[in-house]
Design a protein around this nucleic acid. Sequence first.
DNA 1: ACAGATAGCAATCTCGAGATTATTTTTCGT
DNA 2: ACGAAAAATAATCTCGAGATTGCTATCTGT
Lengths: 247, 247
Amino acid sequence: MNIMIREATIATGGMPSSPPATLIEAAYRAIRRNIVLGVHAPGEKLRVEHLKTQYDMSSGTLREALGLLVADALVVAQGQRGFSVAPMSVSDLEDLVYLRALVETEAARQSLANGDDDWEASLVSCFHRLTRAEERLGARTAEAYEEWERRNFEFHEALVSAARSRRLLELRARLHLQAERYRRLSALDGPRPRDVHNEHQQIYELALKRDADRLVEVLTKHLQRPVDVILKSGLLTPVTAETGKAA
Amino acid sequence: MNIMIREATIATGGMPSSPPATLIEAAYRAIRRNIVLGVHAPGEKLRVEHLKTQYDMSSGTLREALGLLVADALVVAQGQRGFSVAPMSVSDLEDLVYLRALVETEAARQSLANGDDDWEASLVSCFHRLTRAEERLGARTAEAYEEWERRNFEFHEALVSAARSRRLLELRARLHLQAERYRRLSALDGPRPRDVHNEHQQIYELALKRDADRLVEVLTKHLQRPVDVILKSGLLTPVTAETGKAA
DNA sequence: ACAGATAGCAATCTCGAGATTATTTTTCGT
DNA sequence: ACGAAAAATAATCTCGAGATTGCTATCTGT
């Protein structure tokens, strides 16, 4: 009846992903993508009835998909008052970046301690690809940005991939996903390719030198940067999108 | 029709909890409790059909409850092959304790940095109650143990309660919940009240002295202790309940 | 005119049956 | 007798309708 829906509404969220086996997963990815892209604004109420017409699925399926999104902290469930998109705010961003710095730096420390030759090889490879993507970023095209985003993700993933703690890596992935909405926001203001590349270069070199302490410093700054961009650009007003109609 | 089910099957999971507003939450708590208590063994397949007769609920409701438990990492969903209780293993325990140490010590650092007079007061109060509960632990009754567990929880909660990061505290709570199964296991081998009390005393004093570095040391050891107990007692065999029939 | 209460409405929560998929058992061929 | 394919079985996944709950607007009384 509505099988092609999968092909139509689903899009890989940027990172490599296996095809969705179940309808729930399909709905989950579709809604997640639309939240990250801002189609569903922060604070917006997600009425199942309305979503049913939008995604052409049954209420039960959508409910379960929303449940998965609640686990990702992209949707909040208000008791028996339905669901709504998780609000964005400056304090939430600061909290998120703080925890990401903690987790990301710890994962990096583990990686530096455990990384073998294969790890180094993949880091070298990913850094090379990232550098090329950063060069192409001058074109200011959407495709170039998409590729840079993917390469950036892969580079940071390769950096921490030698960490042994399964939970730490899962947590890192979840926080990365939560940060994606804010990342989109800071990208609107225009990135500063040169500074970003310099930081990546430092991270790369320090990682190969196994200088964990200095790497942690640079990584922390690297994660902090988008916060400053967003704050100074005023894209995120102090009180943001509570009811869904802000500037 | 079956309203009294709530009263019958639901039991507060140990920590203070508001009455469940929705049936899903009721099912969630009931199943969670049974997993923590070991009624549902690690690795056991949770067939919805079977659970339906056990909890007297509809399949949809149980599915959503299981979804919530997946978010807590107490249940794993294997694609479209149904749900099963998250397995327990030595490596999983080590991973869990490692991350708990990271999160708990970081939260403690934040608390020491931000804690005001009210925080100190609640810490003093909780430590006092915990001490009394530890004295009563000599009775070896189930009630005494239940109370000690509650006081222990409250003491550690009070310790980190001044931390500002919302996500950090939520993560901490989630990890605490995941650790509860292993805690039950180590409790079977018999606790060593004297050592535990000594550690609590140290933690208490170092917290009031705001000696973060030494507190982190003691806290880490404190969290590590149950691991040693479980390993030495052999309660957790190296290969555990993967499929129910070890390899 | 304002406050409280009641009636109506909308959305959610809950449920059981049908469709789809994975697993097991049986059967056939070599 | 052993291996592989196919049918039967059992579970899950999906769906739409009914019951319950929360919210809103109107109405009445002071």
